[in-house]
């Protein structure tokens, strides 16, 4: 564990807490893409198949349970909670994400570290996470003004993978034979997808204005 990875995990945890706070405090999920939340639930379920087979550390196990539990809870809340579900922007959140799921799974069948059930699903989860934010970014552009908590949620979600890139550079420099090409390339693509969001987020922060994404 290094400071970059810890910062990345904490930033990821903060993004989940901000989202839970928004939904719990405002009893509303307006501006949140259910499709991105469902993609993230798939990412965690596919990635943490080794949850019960490989014990790495208490930290690792606890964090996996937190990410799986929170993503499923948010999906449940947005689908079935009688108050929250009313504020879901159903007509704006129309990204056909099964194309993404199919493409990532096909890619994982071709490109993986080892051709085993667990490794293929792990690679699938890495590729899927890289594009999971797309429905959310599309929804933000369509829904115009973005409330603060939603903006912060997306910001922290994007920042966490940037910390992971620093972590991979650090590990590449300090650990012999450390290579995680699948994670690195995917992580770069994932962070790049946030580039324009980060730009408009910074502008809104500098001008102390509401976050506005151009339609």
């Amino acid at each position: 564990m290094n400071i970059f990875r810890l910062a990345g995990d904490m930033t990821h945890l903060i993004s989940v807490l901000v989202l839970l706070l928004k939904i719990y405090a405002t009893k509303s999920c307006s501006g949140i893409s259910l499709k991105t939340q469902e993609l993230y639930a798939m990412v965690f379920l596919a990635r943490y198949l080794d949850l019960f087979s490989d014990f790495i550390s208490l930290y690792n196990t606890v964090m996996k349970l937190v990410f799986i539990g929170s993503s499923l809870a948010i999906v449940w809340c947005m689908r079935y909670h009688r108050v929250v579900r009313r504020s879901y922007d159903r007509e704006l959140d129309t990204f056909r994400y099964w194309i993404l799921v199919g493409a990532c799974f096909t890619l994982a069948l071709v490109l993986h570290e080892k051709f085993s059930f667990q490794e293929v699903f792990w690679a699938f989860s890495i590729y899927l996470e890289a594009v999971a934010i797309l429905p959310q970014l599309v929804l933000l552009q369509r829904s115009g003004n973005v409330d603060n908590l939603t903006g912060q949620y997306v910001f922290f979600l994007g920042a966490y993978r940037a910390f992971y890139i620093l972590n991979w550079i650090y590990r590449y420099l300090t650990e012999p034979r450390f290579t995680r090409w699948i994670s690195c390339v995917s992580g770069l693509v994932q962070t790049a997808l946030y580039a324009d969001f980060f730009y408009y987020y910074f502008i809104s922060w500098k001008n102390n204005a509401k976050l506005q994404l151009p339609a």
Binding site: D9, D50, D54, I56, F67, K114, Y164, N167, R180, S183
Partner: peptide, 10 residues
């Protein structure tokens, strides 16, 4: 046996 690259990251 090839060591399974341990997935120690989240």
């Amino acid at each position: 046996q090839e060591i399974k690259t341990q997935k120690d990251e989240l």
